[in-house]
Structure formats: C-alpha cells, structure tokens
C-alpha cells in the first residue's frame, strides 16, 4: 500500500491566516510512504518542516523529489529536520539545466546571504540526482519523471507501487498555447505521466478570469485542471497549488462550481493540508 499525505498545498507563497486555516497555508509538499517503509518527499515547500519532525528517528534514508527550483518548492529544505541528522542519507532529485548542476543551483539558495547555513555544512549525507531520468526505482517505488509545461525546467512524477499510481503535477499549464484545450492525448503536456492514475495531484491555481490575466505563468485554472483529469482518465483528482490570495470559502466555491459543471467520472478531493490517501493493495 502507498500512503500519501498532503503537508503543503499552497502555491507561490505561504499564506497562513484565519481565511486559509482549513486548506492550509504551507507551500507544496507531499509525503509518500511505501509498504516497506521507504519515504518519498514530493517538493520541499514550507510544508516539509512539519513533515520532517513527524518522521521517525529510525529512518535512515529519505528521497526528496523536486519538480523544479522555484522558491515555493525548495524554501523548506533548510528546515527539513533530516538534513540536520547525522547518519541519514538524503537523496535530492531535481531537474537538470543546461549550465549548472542541481547542487550548484540549490546552493544559490542554501548559502549566504539568502540562508545562513551552507548546504555542505548539513549533517546528513546528501546525494544529488538530475532528472528527467526516465524510469528509476527508489525502494519499493517505480518512478517516471518527465518535463512538463511550466517556466524553467520542471518535471512531473509518476510514482507506482503495489499496483497503484500516483501522479504529481503541482505546477503545470498544459493549456498554454493550445487554441482548443485539451488537444489529443499525444499533444498534451503531462498526459503520459497522468494517464489512468489512481490519484492525480494537479495544479489548479486560478479561476477562469485570473487565468486569462496570467497566461504563461505556468499554472492552470480549475476548468483546465478538471479537463486534464478527464482527458487522462484518472480515478481521483486533487486540485492543488492554491493561489495564496484564495480563501477557504473561495476554494470551496470554485472547486464545487467546477465539479458541478463538468460532472466528472472521477472522485474529487480538494487539496487540503493534512489529507491522507491510501492507494493500492
């Protein structure tokens, strides 16, 4: 069985406050725990801090899979407890670039003046892996990574274990440039990663009007996210990466509105911090 927990569901900027208390204000972070105890961390937004302190001290390896290096997806790294633990192997996976290594690019954040501690001074043993790496295995997980439509190199992940599939596309604008979205399967960004997934966690940052003013910023509207979920025939969809300006009540309204308009064949669970999913056998 694969256990999936949402530790941060907000996009772009952490947004704590009474108006976002129910959905949560932490930025992107999802934990995936496998049957044999392997732990994957999908993105290291501010949500990764609480995840880190919840993990058992007996855990000796954790793999952090970064979709991209925008701040809301890496800002929690310096506060991830396991990076301060000796004897722990932390593997960080993230998109390659044409010029700098993943380590060099993360060093830009994890070094003064942006951060007081150097990456090299962290107690854990840190290993870097560049993606897309096609198919690879981590413990009991089979993982596929592929580039998707979002500014700056960005990947999505398809995680398979125990007969279940989780697809994670937190920042994704598959409708960009498409005059009629969705196009066919083969011309849709992210389709291969999401096809038939048991659980799709996908960008749904904007309402329709907001998207019109933010085309090319790398995110989807609720309508587009639902259309993508329908095209890829997923079984369960989680709208994710909520805009920091959206209150709990607004998110309730837009997700309910999109669900009513599309009447999807798949289940819809709003991306609320703390939500857990159990997938597979």
């Amino acid at each position: 069985m694969m256990s999936v927990t949402l530790w941060g569901t907000r996009g772009s900027l952490a947004a704590p406050g009474p108006e976002t208390a129910r959905y949560g204000g932490n930025t992107s972070c999802v934990a995936v725990e496998g049957r044999l105890g392997s732990v994957l961390v999908l993105d290291a937004g501010t949500g990764v801090r609480r995840l880190g302190v919840s993990l058992p001290t007996s855990l000796k390896r954790v793999d952090i899979l970064l979709t991209h290096l925008h701040m809301d997806h890496i800002i929690g790294l310096g506060f991830f407890a396991l990076l301060r633990r000796e004897g722990v192997d932390v593997h960080i996976w993230g998109p390659t670039s044409t010029t700098l290594s993943l380590r060099s690019r993360l060093n830009r954040y994890l070094s003064p003046p942006l951060f007081p501690v150097f990456l090299r001074d962290l107690e854990a043993q840190v290993t870097f892996h560049e993606v897309p790496a096609g198919h690879f295995e981590i413990g009991e997980f089979e993982i596929t990574s592929a580039l998707v439509c979002h500014p700056d190199p960005t990947v999505g992940y398809r995680v398979c274990s125990d007969g279940a599939v989780l697809t994670y596309l937190p920042d994704h604008e598959p409708a960009l440039g498409s005059m009629q979205f969705p196009l066919s399967d083969d011309w849709t960004s992210g389709h291969a990663l999401a096809a038939g997934a048991d659980l799709l966690i996908h960008d749904a940052q904007y309402n329709r009007e907001e998207y019109e003013a933010r085309v090319g910023w790398g995110h989807s509207s609720f309508d587009q996210a639902f259309a993508f979920a329908a095209l890829t025939e997923v079984k369960h969809f989680v709208p994710f990466h909520h805009d920091p300006s959206h209150s709990d009540d607004e998110l309730d309204f837009w997700i309910t509105e999109a669900t009513a308009a599309i009447r999807p064949l798949f289940a819809v669970t709003p991306g609320i911090e703390g939500t857990k999913f159990a997938l597979g056998r």
Partner: peptide, 13 residues
C-alpha cells in the same frame, strides 16, 4: 500514440 516531448509540444504551440 505516445505523448510528444514537451519541447515538441511547445514548438507546435
């Protein structure tokens, strides 16, 4: 038919 690479999709757009 398999999905095109993202660079190809963006080039088409």
């Amino acid at each position: 038919m398999s999905q095109k690479e993202i660079e190809i999709i963006l080039a088409r757009h």
